[in-house]
């Protein structure tokens, strides 16, 4: 029972990590391998302000979300001009993000060292205990709630607002969008900014859930991509379901086999999904082949 609760909480947290990528990779077709690295960057920002000024990590992350948005806009500008325009995104675009990831990582290592760091907040050590051995630790519950707000908010944003619909349209048919006198590159720029802004918040959640070190993001590359692919590219609901599924499986595996096996499960699931059902659970058909 406890494993199930833990799994759902973990799933919510995973949704927060993956939701930005579901926009970048799922809708915009930008394979941002550096997504987890940006999350860790956000986590370190939250850590600095928390340890220096005692600010709440989530508050810090919300304040810094616009900064991440701007970074995203800038990166997309470079990406668009250097790779997308010339059609070189497959090889060099991928390598570009891989390089960005390493630069972020090494800069963090040079600045903070390789030690684990964590944040302080009143609610982190708080815990609700129910009958039947079910625990609700606040260090998981708070990220879960914030993650839900973020995921559902984005879901609402992309299905109800004009800009959200424009984002979906970019994914479906950029040429048609251009015929409507809307510049797809501008939409994508803003959408990628939003994707990175979620990294700021996801970073704060990350550092609440567990201690961080500069290269820990590597372990999450597979998990976030697995969730996005599992959920069917670009669907926020799908991403949420994928995240829950992975959280549950991982929690059960950890309970029954021990934590050292859990990474293999997430990645194994990814390989199997890619091999046998590449369109995901709620998939966009005919998108992964060719």
């Amino acid at each position: 029972m406890n494993a199930l609760v833990t799994g759902i909480l973990l799933g919510g947290f995973y949704a927060a990590l993956a939701i930005g990528l579901s926009i970048a990779f799922g809708l915009l077709d930008i394979v941002n391998i550096a997504h987890p690295a940006f999350i860790i960057l956000g986590a370190f920002v939250a850590f600095i302000f928390n340890s220096q000024f005692g600010l709440d990590p989530i508050l810090v992350s919300v304040i810094f979300a616009p900064v991440f948005f701007l970074i995203g806009v800038l990166i997309y500008k470079v990406y668009y001009a250097s790779f997308e325009k010339t059609g070189a995104e497959a090889l060099r675009g991928l390598a570009f993000f891989f390089g960005v990831m390493f630069i972020i990582e090494v800069l963090l290592i040079i600045y903070f060292g390789v030690d684990f760091q964590m944040v302080q907040a009143d609610y982190i050590d708080f815990k609700l205990t129910f009958g039947g051995g079910v625990d609700l630790p606040f260090r998981m519950l708070v990220p879960f709630v914030i993650a839900m707000i973020m995921t559902l908010g984005l879901q609402y944003f992309s299905s109800k607002t004009f800009f959200g619909k424009a984002m979906q349209a970019v994914a479906q048919d950029p040429v048609a969008l251009r015929l409507m006198a809307i510049d797809p590159a501008r939409i994508k720029r803003i959408a990628f900014g939003i994707s990175l802004a979620t990294c700021s918040i996801a970073g704060a959640l990350f550092v609440i859930v567990m201690p961080i070190e500069p290269s820990i993001g590597r372990l999450y590359i597979g998990i976030v991509f697995a969730i996005v692919v599992l959920g069917g590219l670009g669907s926020q609901t799908g991403t949420l379901i994928g995240a829950m599924l992975l959280g549950l499986v991982e929690s059960l595996i950890t309970t029954f086999f021990g934590p050292s096996w859990s990474p293999a499960v997430a990645f194994g699931a990814l390989i199997l999904v890619l091999a046998f059902k590449p369109t995901g659970i709620l998939g966009r058909v005919g998108d992964t082949r060719g």
């Binding site: 394979v31 391998i33 497959a90 090889l91 991928l94 372990l219 590359i221 597979g222 991509f225 697995a226 692919v229 990474p263 293999a264 997430a266 990645f267 194994g268 990814l270 390989i271 890619l274 091999a275 590449p278 992964t288 082949r289 060719g290």
Partner: peptide, 15 residues
């Protein structure tokens, strides 16, 4: 598509 091969190889590494 090539992208999926890239991600799968990364997954293979962790597995």
């Amino acid at each position: 598509r090539g992208v999926y091969f890239a991600i799968a190889t990364l997954a293979l590494l962790v597995v």
